[in-house]
Design a protein around this nucleic acid. Structure first.
Length: 304
DNA sequence: TACCAGGTAAAAA
DNA sequence: TTTTTACATGGT
């Protein structure tokens, strides 16, 4: 996008360490991308019906600040709020680092990943569909299914994809959803949750203001969302740092790899990460990212 | 070629 | 109540 149509940048000052470029690398390590991401966060989303491209950069010489621009331009307050969500500004890493520094396993991991924050998908609705697609399937398989959903029902804005709107997926022919790679059952989940969001029965904006337990309960009330999916949405979509899907196969494998060289049971995972409360899921994220960026192992062993 | 991968709801026992 | 089962695609 050209600077001329981007409007004035919104400046966001952050609490605690943040490294946008490394955070983007971390996020990219979980999906099969053709190339490394540039050190700019680009998010495409529909705002008031208009395809909008938001770009966020870390300010040179002022690493505590990021600058966000939108094309077409957005009201300053709105852009500020959107940027805050996209960079997970509500999360301050410093207290987590203080806990991790005392642990022989985590200390070197946070050193190597200083400033990394989990970055959510552009919209919480997209995160819901991420959760459904990743149920039971490999991240790569789920990624390709979502790519087909975007191609069929979404859009593109300056080469950045825009995920389909709830209404578009709610109105989708089940056969078309299945043609994207969803199972019959998952196609129903996607249509159900898209319809709930489109009709206002499921208020995603309200989730942000809820406690972990309350938000999890709301999500679990939605067909297709069990405990794992609800907690996954909380950690990745809402940036909650202590909402650990203890049964998660990938986490049990990768965390176990660091602590004892074998996959853990859900109970063992809880026990091993207990010292990092209230940052247990953040600790797990750091281990998963570290494994992918710095300790690539045999097939699948990198975990996530 | 199979098998497994960041599960879930519904059927069966 | 608890235990099975069907399900989708991609990587190895």
């Amino acid at each position: 996008m050209s600077a001329a149509c981007a409007g004035a940048p919104a400046i966001l000052r952050l609490a605690g360490p943040f490294d946008l470029a490394l955070s983007l690398r971390a996020a990219a390590s979980f999906v099969p991308l053709p190339q490394a991401p540039p050190p700019v966060l680009r998010a495409g989303l529909r705002i008031d019906g208009r395809p909008t491209l938001v770009a966020i950069r870390q300010r040179r010489g002022r690493p505590q600040e990021v600058a966000a621009t939108a094309a077409p331009p957005l009201a300053a307050a709105r852009l500020q709020a959107l940027a805050a969500r996209l960079v997970n500004a509500g999360l301050d890493l410093q207290p987590f680092y203080a806990l991790a520094a005392a642990d022989p396993v985590l200390a070197p991991v946070v050193q190597a990943l200083w400033g990394v924050k989990p970055l959510p998908p552009p919209s919480l609705f997209e995160m819901l569909i991420v959760a459904i697609t990743e149920q039971q399937l490999s991240l790569a398989a789920a990624f390709h299914i979502r790519r087909r959903l975007v191609e069929r029902f979404g859009a593109a804005c300056a080469e950045v994809s825009i995920f389909p709107e709830p209404a578009a997926l709610a109105a989708a022919d089940p056969a078309q959803l299945q043609a994207c790679g969803l199972s019959r059952r998952k196609a129903e989940y996607v249509r159900d949750v898209a319809a709930a969001v489109a009709a206002g029965r499921l208020d995603l904006d309200a989730l942000a203001g809820m406690s972990d337990a309350a938000a999890q309960a709301v999500l679990e009330g939605q067909r297709g969302f069990g405990r794992w999916s609800a907690q996954y949405v909380l950690t990745r979509g809402l940036g909650r740092a202590d909402c650990l899907p203890a049964a998660d196969v990938g986490l049990r494998r990768v965390v176990g790899r660091y602590f004892c060289g074998r996959p853990l049971s859900p109970q063992e995972l809880e026990r091993v990460l207990a010292p990092f409360a209230p940052y247990r899921s953040l600790a797990a994220y750091y281990l998963a990212v570290h494994a992918r960026l710095f300790r690539p192992g045999p097939a699948g062993a990198a975990g996530a």
